[in-house]
Design a protein around this nucleic acid. Structure first.
Lengths: 185, 185, 185, 185
DNA sequence: GATGAATGAGACTTCATTCAT
DNA sequence: GATGAATGAAGTCTCATTCAT
């Protein structure tokens, strides 16, 4: 139950941080969501910041395992890998509201909490690397890397628009542009 | 001095909200930046929220006058208009740090403070309309509008990346893509 | 206009103190009611407390002139005097809402602002003396004085009930009891 | 200790609200009286208003149990019940200073905080009903009810006078009048 | 005489954190 | 591992008062 509870706190925090923001989410909010008192959370995490870093790691690990991994799946063709990757991204950000925790945190605390910014960059780096890996055969390493950075930016922009206008098409369109990059040959 | 002081508070608040976030910026922070006590700000704005809304309006008005207006400048060719527009966008977001207040707020409080979200959407709507206006002759109204939405998203994504990685190239590249949309004929 | 404005401030303050209480009425409230800014009130009164004391004096003077005086009106019989007195009391407290400023202040700040308590006692003393003056011929000085104190208390209690239940009968009944004291012969 | 501490806060608040008034008593005042910091009180009550409502309920419950109950004590004769009732009232309001919290609040916030007014009326209703219950056998329901309302008003007026003049006789006299209502047969 | 702005204290309330039970 | 209670700092906002214009 220890592990389960810890993960429970992380998952509730993830949702709250995403929807309400980091500074606007109190330990009491998190406690309430978990069915705990705020003080009890300190049995699992030493501070609000430590909790948030665990949440960031949780998201990052999830993407490594369930999203980015598709880019390196050697049992599939490049086009298939990309399709699976895109599908995973779209499924993830369509399933729950609040957009992308990493993007949200980047804009909320990117300039004030450098510990967070470092980890968010690492996540974006992995995202970029995954896409670059898929584009490299066709475009070469240098250009693929550059294109991947642009794609990540475009995707984050699309998620922002999707959230602000409550319309999932934005992300879908951005992903189609990405898909086109490989289907053009 | 009234007008000046009110605008002074707005400008300091703009900077602080942008860099530190809305919830992480206290009235005391703003007061200190303006050389006032926290309580004195209430001589100008009835609440922190009212102040933030004034800041949002200030930014929106600025963009209408100094950025979006380029798209409607009938003394220039379409290509020139677009070039001026792009130049204004790039200058604005390169000049100061903290990215785009509107995008930042969209992600920090978009789901919590609907009064803010409405105004931010209005800003993005105007931005979109300006670009659509430039693309319509070549692409037709429907497609231009759609492309404009994508461009705005891409720009916001680029600003996010620019801020996170502290590299201005992101925005420059996004703008080049926009420029290419008209120079391709 | 000086005198008029000063009295204007007093009258608005009287109403606000009566309905909202002393501590719950701000100088800004009073200013707004008078069409002034809060700072302007200090052109008339040196402090909130000085203003309140002026209001107390205003009420006391009004009662001396228009209510208590009936008890000493030598052109009338005792029964007539009492009837006029009662009529004046009833008219006053029925005309406006908020009950009796003096009673309200007695209970709100009687133990914390002795300057107020002293003046409120003086007002009650005069009220008591007026009634005692009317009852003395029939009951003798000692007993009349005692009865008058009881009558004043009963009247204040009736005003409290009248205000709490929003029913003017309470005061009317109390006044009838007073009237009966002289008509019983 | 929970119950004890919560009741402790209520009792200190009762005393302070009674003597200093509601708006003139700060959470810091209450905290100091309880040996707590102002913020700690929010572990017991969600707001100052919630605390005040708990205080009102506390007083009301106390009167139901220790004062009004005498009126319904079937083991005693009517005259004894009334004597016990009167004795309880007199003991209560003589024991502590500040008068009657309910009456004080009625005049301070009766027109501003309707949540308070409703509860205060309920308290006065029960008080009235208790006296009416005692007077009904002799006077009939209708008249007894009317007389009871007058008695409650007179008692409150007496408590006001008692507090303002710092003389306990007022209440004693009012109670004697009440006692006479039954001893006249 | 009126105003807009400033002040400093203080109001209610929230928060992250700690700790004995 | 959970809780209730405490803390002290900080947050938004209000207030009485002052003063230059």
């Amino acid at each position: 139950m220890t592990k389960a509870s810890k993960e429970l706190v992380i998952e509730h925090s993830l949702r709250l941080f995403k929807v309400q923001g980091y500074h606007n989410t109190s330990m009491a909010d998190i406690g309430t969501a978990c069915g705990l008192l705020k003080g009890s959370i300190y049995n699992y995490f030493s501070s609000k910041e430590a909790l948030a870093l665990a949440v960031i790691k949780f998201v990052h690990d999830y993407f490594k395992q369930y999203v980015f991994a598709h880019a390196y799946d050697e049992t599939r063709s490049e086009t298939e890998r990309l399709a699976n990757f895109i599908q995973a991204v779209e499924a993830y950000f369509t399933a729950e509201s609040g957009g992308c925790l990493m993007g949200n945190l980047a804009l909320e605390v990117g300039d004030t909490l450098p510990q967070f910014a470092t980890r968010i960059r690492a996540y974006f780096d992995d995202w970029t690397a995954a896409i670059a890996h898929l584009l490299t055969p066709q475009y070469g390493l240098i250009q693929a890397k550059q294109m991947a950075l642009t794609v990540v930016g475009n995707t984050q922009g699309a998620i922002m628009m999707m959230r602000l206008y409550q319309k999932p098409e934005f992300l879908h369109l951005a992903n189609q542009s990405l898909a086109d990059l490989l289907s053009q040959n």
